[in-house]
Design a protein around this nucleic acid. Structure first.
Length: 424
DNA sequence: TCTGGGGTCCTAGGACCC
DNA sequence: TCTGGGGTCCTAGGACCC
C-alpha cells in the first residue's frame, strides 16, 4: 500500500501552550520570545493580524507598536517540551507510523488507518488532541511529505475546512498548486525562491512542471526531490526512528556583553557542562570539541572579532570535567582582550555510542571512576533539580546569564509550580 | 540596554594518491 | 605553444528546516 502522509502541526505552538494554563490569554494578542528575550518566535493569530512579523527583535516591537497591549512571554522550553510529548503520544494512537519531525510537528502514515475517509480521520485526530491536551492542531494530507506540508498550509487558512485539508484527490491539485507561491513550498527558502522567480517559475504548479535538467543543474538533487514530490512521487520516506545524532551544540547569547576572561571562562564551562549532560542523556561520547566566541555583529561601531578552535580528544568522552578542561584551554587560546563579546558556544562532533569508545594505549585517565561520578551527578541533578550539583568554574549567579524576564511557570514538570485552581 | 538556538544535507574545491 | 586521468577523502560554506 502506498503511504498517505498526514502532517499534524500544532497551531502557534508556544502561544497555545501558554494559553492552556492561562485561558485569559485566549482571544488576546500574545507573543513568545526567543532565548535572551531577543526575538519574537511565536505569535497568536491576533498578533499576526496586528502585523507583528516573525523574528522581529523584541525591542523593535516595543518601538513599532508602543500603544498596543500585547502579552509577552519568555520561552519556557520545560513546558513546551512536555506538552509536545503529550501531543506526540496521542498521535501514536492514531498510527503506528509516526515521525516526530520537530517539537510541534509530526508526519503520520495513515494509509491503512483511516478506513477510506481521510478527512474524517483527520478531524478525529484534531478533536482528540484538542480535548486531551488543549492544543489546537492543523492537519494536511497528501501523497508525499511535500504535498502534506502544502496541504497543511491550506488547512491553517481561516476559510479552509476547519483545520484539515486533504490533497490526495487528483482534481483540486492543479488550482491549489497554481495558487501556491514557490516560497511557500517546503525546502524552498529565500535564495531558491529568488532564483526560481527570476527564471519564470513562480508557483508550485510551475515548479512541478519544470525541466528536470535545469532543476538538477541549479538546485542539485535536493531540488529534484522537491519537484518529484510535487508530482506525487514520494522521495522522502517516513523516518520513524531518529537517525543517530552527528553533532550537538550548546551556545547562548549573553544577557550583557562579556569583557573579561574570567566571565568568559564561566560561560564556556557552563556550556561545556550542559553539552556533556546532553551527551550522557543520549548515551554518546564526543571525539571532537569545538569552541567559539563572537562579538555583537549588529554593533557596527564596535570592533568585531569571532573565532573558533577545534580540539580532537585523545579518547572520546562525555566526562564533564574533561570536556570543561578542553573547552577552557580552547577559549583561553581564542580570547582577545579589548572586545565586547556577545555569544560563545561549544560544539561536539565525532559522536560515538558511549559503549563503543576506542581506548587509547597511553591514556592515563581513570575513566571508570569518572563515569561513576558522572552517573552520580546526573542522578542527583535529576532528583534535586537541574544544577543542584555543578562545577565551581561554571560560576554561581553569573552576570552574563541570559535574560528571561517574562517566563511563565513550569506547570507540568515542577511540583511547586503546578497550576492552582480555586473554586468560588 | 535590546537582534535565538540547534540541527541536517549537499556541493565545490583542495590535498593527496597511483 | 605544449603539462594526464581518475579516484578518494576532507573541509568549508551554502541552503534549508523548525
Amino acid at each position: 500500500m502506498p503511504p498517505i502522509f498526514a502532517l499534524v502541526d500544532c497551531n502557534n505552538f508556544y502561544v497555545s501552550c501558554e494559553r492552556v494554563f492561562q485561558p485569559l490569554l485566549c482571544g488576546q494578542p500574545v507573543v513568545v520570545l526567543s532565548n535572551n528575550d531577543g526575538c519574537i518566535i511565536a505569535r497568536s493569530e491576533e498578533a499576526k493580524t496586528l502585523g507583528i512579523p516573525m523574528g522581529l527583535p523584541f525591542f523593535q516591537m516595543r518601538e513599532q507598536f508602543p500603544n498596543l497591549s500585547i502579552q509577552v512571554y519568555s520561552s519556557n522550553y520545560a513546558l513546551y517540551g512536555d506538552m509536545s510529548a503529550r501531543v506526540m503520544s496521542i498521535l501514536k494512537q492514531f498510527s503506528p507510523q509516526v515521525e516526530v519531525y520537530s517539537i510541534d510537528e509530526a508526519f503520520l502514515d495513515i494509509s491503512g488507518c483511516a478506513g477510506g475517509d481521510l478527512k474524517a480521520y483527520g478531524h478525529r485526530i484534531r478533536h482528540t488532541v484538542k480535548q486531551w491536551t488543549g492544543i489546537p492542531v492543523s492537519i494536511g494530507i497528501g501523497a508525499t511529505k511535500t504535498l502534506a506540508k502544502l496541504a497543511n498550509r491550506l488547512a491553517k487558512r481561516a476559510d479552509a475546512a476547519q483545520g484539515v485539508f486533504d490533497l490526495t484527490g487528483s482534481k483540486p491539485q492543479d488550482d491549489v498548486l497554481q495558487s501556491t507561491p514557490v516560497k511557500d513550498i517546503w525546502g524552498i527558502g529565500r535564495s531558491y525562491s529568488r532564483l526560481l522567480q527570476a527564471n519564470g517559475i513562480a508557483t508550485a504548479l510551475a515548479l512541478r512542471d519544470a525541466d528536470d535538467r535545469w532543476i538538477r543543474k541549479h538546485m542539485g538533487v535536493v531540488g529534484i526531490r522537491i519537484v518529484w514530490e510535487l508530482r506525487g512521487i514520494s522521495c522522502l520516506p517516513l523516518e520513524r526512528h531518529a537517525p543517530p545524532k552527528k553533532s550537538l551544540m550548546v551556545s547562548r547569547s549573553f544577557g550583557r556583553s562579556i569583557t573579561s576572561l574570567d566571565d568568559m571562562r564561566e560561560a564556556v564551562a557552563t556550556y561545556a557542562s550542559r553539552a556533556a549532560e546532553k551527551l550522557r542523556r543520549h548515551r554518546l561520547a564526543a571525539g571532537i570539541l569545538s569552541v567559539f566566541l563572537m562579538t555583537n555583529r549588529f554593533k557596527s561601531d564596535e570592533p568585531q572579532y569571532s573565532n573558533d578552535i577545534k580540539i580532537t580528544l585523545p579518547v572520546a568522552s562525555s566526562d564533564t570535567a574533561e570536556l570543561i578542561a578542553y573547552a577552557l584551554a580552547g577559549i583561553e587560546h581564542l580570547y582577545e582582550a579589548g572586545y565586547r563579546y556577545k555569544k560563545a558556544g561549544v560544539l561536539l562532533t565525532g559522536l560515538v555510542p558511549a559503549h563503543q569508545i576506542q581506548m587509547h594505549l597511553f591514556d592515563a585517565r581513570d575513566r571508570e571512576r569518572a563515569q561513576k561520578l558522572m552517573t552520580l551527578v546526573d542522578h542527583i541533578n535529576t532528583q534535586m533539580g537541574s544544577g543542584a550539583i555543578q562545577y565551581a568554574v561554571a560560576g554561581f549567579r553569573p552576570r552574563w546569564q541570559m535574560r528571561r524576564a517574562r517566563m511563565s511557570k513550569r506547570y507540568t514538570t515542577q511540583w511547586d509550580e503546578l497550576a492552582v485552581v480555586r473554586a468560588v
